[in-house]
Simulated scan of single mutants.
Amino acid sequence: MGAEHKIRNAMEVAEEAREEGIFVIPSSPLTLDISLPLPLLKPRVTGLCRELFKKWSHLDDSCFSIETVSGGITNLLLKLSVREDNGNDAFVTVRMYGPNTEYVIDRKQELLALPYLSAAGFGAELLGVFGNGMVQSFINARTLSPSDMTKPKLAAEIARQLCKFHQVEIPGSKEPQLWNDIFKFLESASALKFDDSEKQMKYDTISFREVSDAVKELKVLTDLLHAPVVYAHNDLLSGNLMRNDDEEKLYFIDFEYGSYSYRGYDIANHFNEYAGFDCDYSLYPDKDAQYHFFRNYLQADKPNEVTDKDLEALYIETNTFRLASHLFWGLWALIQAKMSPIDFDYLGYFFLRYSEYKKQKEMCFSLAQRYISGS
Results as ranks from 00 to 15, higher is better:
247 E>A: 15
332 W>G: 13
266 D>E: 11
367 L>F: 07
126 L>G: 12
289 A>T: 12
355 S>C: 09
34 I>R: 15
241 L>K: 11
256 E>F: 03
198 E>G: 02
361 K>H: 11
317 E>F: 02
9 N>M: 12
123 G>T: 06
119 A>Y: 01
210 E>C: 05
1 M>Y: 10
144 L>W: 05
170 I>A: 05
43 P>V: 02
26 P>D: 10
48 L>K: 03
347 L>R: 06
236 L>Q: 09
375 S>F: 05
144 L>R: 08
349 Y>Q: 14
143 T>D: 05
163 C>F: 05
66 I>Y: 03
142 R>F: 14
340 S>M: 04
206 I>V: 01
26 P>M: 14
7 I>K: 13
267 I>E: 02
302 K>D: 03
10 A>V: 12
128 G>D: 14
321 F>D: 06
351 F>W: 11
289 A>Q: 11
98 G>Q: 05
194 F>L: 02
222 T>L: 10
301 D>P: 00
184 K>C: 04
201 M>P: 00
360 Q>F: 00
137 S>I: 02
244 N>P: 07
37 P>I: 07
199 K>L: 10
16 E>V: 03
208 F>H: 04
139 I>E: 11
134 M>L: 04
288 D>V: 12
195 D>F: 02
126 L>K: 09
249 K>M: 00
27 S>Y: 14
191 A>W: 01
149 M>S: 00
111 L>R: 02
248 E>Y: 01
299 Q>S: 14
235 D>K: 02
298 L>W: 00
113 A>H: 01
62 S>V: 09
138 F>K: 05
151 K>I: 14
12 E>A: 15
4 E>C: 03
224 L>Y: 00
320 T>E: 11
281 Y>M: 08
105 I>L: 15
187 E>K: 03
118 S>W: 08
50 R>S: 13
100 N>D: 15
162 L>S: 09
306 V>I: 05
67 E>R: 15
22 I>T: 12
255 F>T: 15
66 I>N: 01
291 Y>I: 14
130 F>Y: 12
132 N>S: 03
22 I>P: 02
22 I>A: 03
368 A>S: 15
353 R>L: 11
175 E>I: 13
199 K>P: 00
14 A>T: 06
287 K>Q: 14
28 S>D: 15
98 G>M: 05
115 P>S: 09
285 P>L: 03
248 E>H: 09
87 G>H: 04
371 Y>A: 12
102 E>W: 08
22 I>M: 05
331 L>N: 06
3 A>R: 07
123 G>C: 12
8 R>L: 07
327 L>K: 04
123 G>L: 10
138 F>I: 08
190 S>G: 11
77 L>D: 01
375 S>D: 08
228 P>V: 01
62 S>C: 03
64 F>N: 04
8 R>W: 06
197 S>L: 14
270 H>P: 09
27 S>K: 08
359 K>H: 12
148 D>W: 03
89 D>T: 15
184 K>L: 04
206 I>Q: 00
176 P>G: 05
314 L>V: 04
